[in-house]
Nucleic acid binder design. Structure first.
Length: 308
DNA sequence: CCAGACGTTGTT
DNA sequence: GTCTGG
DNA sequence: CCAGACGTTGTT
DNA sequence: GTCTGG
């Protein structure tokens, strides 16, 4: 799984996908180093534009809420009960038991892309006792993982929307797909060997704009990026309060093994052997004109009462 | 994912 | 330790 | 028929 | 809303 995602596009003035650019400078929710999924914070997603030939960048709450939920209160109750920050890409249309999955309708009709500038996962290392023995207690070392040479990348998302009758806000909620981790991610996220699917621009476009078969959509959602295309570094443990992934070295920590990297078997070999460098050589983002403020959802407990 | 609770009673 | 709520 | 679930994990 | 389990 993956519950911490960065959307800190500080250097680019636009988001590009397959040659199409959209300005982002008016969206102030796009400059966040780490979104905490459990805050259902506003985040940026790409959805197809009305003409079907282009995309729009819109705001969504991270934490998918299914269609039968129509009010903020019901949504909060649902989210308090279920974790819908991610969907298992293996279960995009069909559950393990063969039933149609809860995601199927969105997978067919409401696909989107979740922008990422780096995800955060923790590596669990056993504490060492006084006599050098491994203890059951784990020390957690957070890592930020990103894509070599790219300022941002795309995760396959599913969204849903409802008109909140209380606030007249149009609410979009979103989840992104996770798959088996590759060899590097298995060492970092070693407690649960899962990671988000990371898409090439080609696959992102196909997921967002085309009408692939269920089989093909499942395949795209399960895309497993090769280890050698990932960048990673340890970051400061306070990332959840600062909402920033600040690189920090932990000298006591054994390095991640990358000796295998050229021979890693690619299970879902959608990725080109060499990643084309998109090289966003853009200047510092200049906030100009009117800024669209982020809308933070009200928090409501199980009784439906507001709290801060 | 982390932080915090972790018990009993009564009550429309 | 383990479960739950956010 | 109604009541309840509807998600992700986990495991040596 | 819709499906499943009892």
């Amino acid at each position: 799984m993956c519950y911490y995602n960065g959307q800190k596009v500080t250097r680019a003035e636009s988001i590009r996908l397959k040659g199409i650019e959209k300005a982002i400078k008016r969206y102030n929710f796009l400059n966040v180093g780490v979104h905490n999924g459990f805050n259902y914070a506003p985040c940026a997603i790409l959805i197809p534009s009305a003409n079907g030939k282009d995309f729009d960048i819109v705001q969504a709450e991270w934490g998918y809420v299914p269609g039968f939920v129509k009010t903020r209160t019901e949504a909060n109750i649902f989210r308090a009960k279920y974790t819908t920050l991610n969907f298992k890409s293996e279960n995009l249309f069909v559950k393990e038991n063969g039933d149609r999955s809860m995601w199927a309708d969105a997978a067919k009709n409401r696909r989107c892309l979740v922008l990422s500038t780096g995800i955060v996962e923790s590596r669990h290392v056993p504490k060492i006792g006084k006599k050098g023995q491994e203890l059951k207690e784990m020390i957690k070392y957070p890592y930020q993982i990103s894509l070599k040479g790219q300022e941002y990348f795309y995760l396959p998302g599913l969204y849903n929307e409802w008109l909140d009758p209380e606030t007249s806000q149009f609410v979009i909620t979103v989840a992104f797909g996770i798959t088996d981790s590759n060899q590097v991610m298995s060492q970092i996220h070693n407690s649960k060997k899962r990671m988000p699917a990371i898409l090439t621009d080609e696959l992102a476009w196909e997921w967002l704009m085309e009408k692939p078969s269920e089989e093909r959509l499942s395949q795209i959602a399960r895309t497993q990026i090769p280890s050698r295309l990932l960048d990673f570094c340890t970051v400061d443990r306070n990332y959840r309060t600062t909402l920033e992934a600040t690189p920090l070295d932990y000298p006591e920590l054994a390095p991640i093994d990358t000796a295998f990297i050229d021979t890693e078997e690619l299970k879902f070999n959608h990725w080109p052997m060499e990643l084309e460098q998109l090289s966003d050589q853009k200047e510092e983002m200049v906030l100009a004109g009117e800024t669209i403020p982020a809308y933070y959802p009200p928090r409501i407990n199980k009784q439906g009462d507001l709290f801060s």
